[in-house]
Amino acid sequence: MSKICIVSSHSPYSSTSVRDGIESLLVAASFDMDASLLVLGDGILQLLNKQAPESLPQKNTGSLLQALEIYGVESIYVCEQDLVDRGLTQDDLILTPTIISRSQVPSLLQEQDSILNF
């Protein structure tokens, strides 16, 4: 099974990058690929559990991410340093992503057959 990682490093509502990334992830999963999501930098804000973007109006990225499991995407990675930098903990996040250190990122990417940046 081909491994694909979507790297998402933008905050949720300033552009369509995040939604484009999530949609690509869903398509990859529907293609029977081993699809994972690596959230970097401000991308961590997509996972906040108290988002209320209704007045923007935009779709809640947290809710979109919650749908990933239904599509068979179970691997979501975040960097511990990105949480620390923003004063966040696991309790602030929707889902339970795998928390890795910055130094583990290269090997995670190394295992992939393909990577798409959003």
Partner: peptide, 11 residues
Amino acid sequence: SGLGQLIDGTA
């Protein structure tokens, strides 16, 4: 065309 072409192209 759709995002399927992106994923197919990547694969």
